[in-house]
Design a protein around this nucleic acid. Structure first.
Lengths: 196, 196
DNA sequence: TTCTATCTTCCTACTAGTTGGTAGTTTCGA
DNA sequence: TCGAAACTACCAACTAGTAGGAAGATAGAA
């Protein structure tokens, strides 16, 4: 019977939290060791190098995202509702300060100075989110659930930029409500007008 | 007769470049010393601590921004043209990789782990840009140069988030053209439709 | 004009603490 | 008894920052 929480999961979880608050160069193995409650050297047993650790974290972050998206697509048929659910996910994370920033947003801003292996994984994450949103946009447009003013992939990039820009603004002002303030009109713009 | 380029200006310039690429914890006094061509200790003469250095950098970054905005407002009367000029400024910076990212975007994402003195200065920068954009939105709306669908301050936050989100996307994909791809429809949306 | 005192800027040399990472050993459950 | 997972004890390189001195410019008084 496998444990519910393994040490390596604990290491990844604390890495994620540290990464969200200060970026790749903003935390050390010593920080993780204090939080998890094991010695620095023991972390190296699970993740030989810092690059290994963060690369694995980002890889799982993308995989978890892909799994969540799959569930979302299955549960929610309407394209607009999917976009709303995606926005609400981040709104909730920011509001309850559980995960008030995206790991990959953090890393993307540091991209030029990141080890290439990590940088590649980060780029992959953005490509995944972007192509998923583009598919949602296209389907929603065809089925009349979304009203687009540009090509689906352009609308996807716009929506993604709005979400990540709003995330940054919420952090910059220290006001969680800024996120919803920006996302609400963005979603309204994509809502089809009901003829009457 | 004052020199055109002082050492302290050189230090600030190289700090800006290093900061843009790797954030607050992504550079050291040793890095600056190599670029500027003086010893580490000499940097401490100009900026006693790293906090002093970055606080001063961000302060001047905001002051330079305020000066540029003043010139822009004077030269360009039309509100839509001002927004276009602002977007073009960043598009150009990203395209020629001269300053492919905003110092304060970088620092804002690291905000929770930043020294408070620096964090305060960063928040001030965003408040300045935000209130300036809000004033442009309001004036443009009243004079029929902009077509708003939300309150001016909401449109301002939306526009700011779009610009900074697009900046992040361009960096994440390593494709400068993504910025313009996102900004173009965003500006179109604000363009009044000419009645005919 | 020249001597002198002061100021600025840079230097060498150093410190204490932290960084990511290694070597070798112990503990412990299957 | 074997392997995984933890440990102690290191290490070299790097971190921001300090102490104290040397070189040059400047300015006032002789």
């Amino acid at each position: 019977m496998s444990n519910l929480s393994t040490t390596s999961d604990d290491i990844l979880a604390s890495t994620r939290n540290l990464l969200i608050s200060g970026g790749y160069n903003g935390f050390s193995y010593a920080d993780i060791s204090e939080i998890v409650g094991i010695r620095k050297a023991s972390i190296h047993h699970h993740f030989p190098s810092k690059v290994d650790l963060v690369r694995e974290l980002v890889k799982r972050y993308r995989e978890d995202g892909q799994a969540s998206v799959a569930v979302l697509e299955q549960k929610v048929p309407n394209a607009l509702d999917i976009l709303k659910a995606y926005a609400n996910h981040w709104a909730a994370c920011i509001e309850d300060s559980s995960r008030p920033y995206c790991v990959c947003a953090m890393l993307a801003s540091e991209l030029p100075s990141l080890p290439t292996e990590v940088a590649t994984e980060v780029t992959n994450f953005f490509r995944f989110i972007s192509s998923w949103l583009a598919s949602v946009m296209e389907r929603g447009s065809k089925q009349g659930e979304l009203s687009l003013t540009s090509a689906p992939h352009v609308e996807a990039e716009t929506f993604l930029a709005t979400v990540y820009g709003a995330m940054l603004s919420a952090r910059a002002y220290g006001k969680a409500e800024v996120f919803s303030m920006i996302l609400e009109p963005a979603l309204n713009r994509l809502t089809p007008t009901v003829s009457h």
